[in-house]
Amino acid sequence: MLLGAAAITAFVLILLAIAWRRSEGSGPDERVWTLGLGVGFVMTVLVALVGYGFWVGERILPRTDGALRITAEAQQWGWVFTQPGPDGAVIETQDVLYVPARTPLDLEITSTDVIHSFWVPRLGGKMDAVPGRANVLRLFAEAPGELEGLCAEFCGLGHSFMRFRVIVYEPGAFPDLSTSDGDENE
């Protein structure tokens, strides 16, 4: 997306430079500018962006396919994740979410106080954490690694520090909890 935006900006700057250098009255008809670039080009870019938005939106919708389910509970100013641990037993982690790679999972997101928003930029869209309601977000991580997540809805004085880590692991190789920085309670 950044490359596309840069290409469009460069294209517009080149057009501006050409317009600056050409003599009065020469060049293509004004219809080319108004209909071709003013309407046609803009519509094409907007339709492409909206189409991409729909694709991303569809990708993060939960499905009824029996995917792994994890709960994320937001509170001022941290996240508690309840998920299956290394031996299958349910564990609760503070500000650390463990995600198996290449495995779709549904995250049930809620809040105990004010509205927050769950967001891992590398995994897709945001989802609000609303008190008294569980919103479900489909997540899919391609490769093992560590990703950053944050609260994307202003939720009070500690909002900017309300971050969490997402540890993506190879399926069947749950990370050693004793070496992790997060607080885990079985």
Partner: peptide, 14 residues
């Protein structure tokens, strides 16, 4: 035509 085409293209009621 454009703004209502998602009726046919996207999921609904989530």
């Amino acid at each position: 035509l454009l703004t209502l085409a998602p009726i046919l293209l996207t999921s609904t009621c989530f």
